[in-house]
């Protein structure tokens, strides 16, 4: 469905590329490691917020009515979760690529970092998808989406930034598996609650 509107996808891509470029210019291409990590995650957070909100809130009311007659709400939210997970996963890889191209790549444990990136992407997308659903039912404004999702995304961002810092600076990954499992659970949980609660949101 979304693929029919390539301009919105391109918009997200352009957003990521231009923010990466702005960061590169702002730091004159020479970024300290902690700043690299935090700026990277902040860009990713806003990028995924854009991506997730686009899916739901650019939807006109008539289309909502159309889906409403056609689809099972559980299927709809599941498909949206999958779609957003994929989208944000790709987005995060692209951001990583662009960032290391322009600003250098200080990451020592690349595979661990990418693993974290993907799971973090799933987590972000599951929180943001549910919040976008809530915001879109509440009268479609991006500011509402931002207000609702910030406090919910923040703790996950803290975990991600901590793990990311470890992947960048540490010589040896300690508790890598444990961090990954925790992150994975954090990613699954919001999706699960979202799937349970979405039918309630759906009724009109």
């Amino acid at each position: 469905m979304e693929l029919k509107q390539p301009h919105s996808l391109n918009g997200i891509l352009l957003y990521v590329i231009s923010t990466v470029f702005v960061t590169y210019l702002a730091f004159h291409g020479d970024i300290p490691i902690t700043a690299w990590n935090s700026v990277f995650w902040i860009i990713l957070m806003f990028g995924s917020m854009n991506a997730a909100s686009r899916v739901l809130y650019q939807e006109p009311y008539s289309r909502h009515a159309f889906y409403y007659q056609l689809l099972n709400p559980t299927h709809l939210i599941l498909s949206r979760l999958l779609y957003n997970g994929l989208l944000i996963g790709i987005l995060s890889l692209l951001t990583f690529g662009g960032f290391s191209l322009l600003c250098g790549n200080p990451v020592k444990h690349t595979s661990y970092f990418i693993f974290e990136l993907l799971i973090g992407g799933i987590g972000l997308s599951s929180v943001l998808t549910v919040v976008a659903a809530i915001a879109s039912r509440a009268g479609q404004s991006f500011s509402l989406m931002a207000i609702l999702s910030f406090p919910l995304v923040l703790p996950m961002m803290l975990v991600l930034i901590n793990l990311g810092e470890q992947a960048i600076t540490a010589d040896q990954i300690t508790n890598g598996l444990r961090g990954g499992i925790v992150l994975f659970l954090l990613a699954l949980l919001p999706a699960l609650i979202g799937v349970i609660l979405f039918p309630h949101l759906w009724r009109d």
């Binding site: 509440a138 009268g139 207000i147 609702l148 406090p151 919910l152 919001p190 609650i193 309630h200 949101l201």
Partner: peptide
């Protein structure tokens, strides 16, 4: 944010339902 969300919705039943969903979601997280 929960309170802000409530302010944004006019219709009573709708407001109650949406904010209830957000409340549960936020609390568990």
């Amino acid at each position: 944010a929960y309170l802000v969300l409530r302010h944004g919705i006019e219709e009573e039943q709708k407001r109650a339902r949406i904010s209830a969903v957000y409340n549960i979601f936020a609390f568990v997280l």
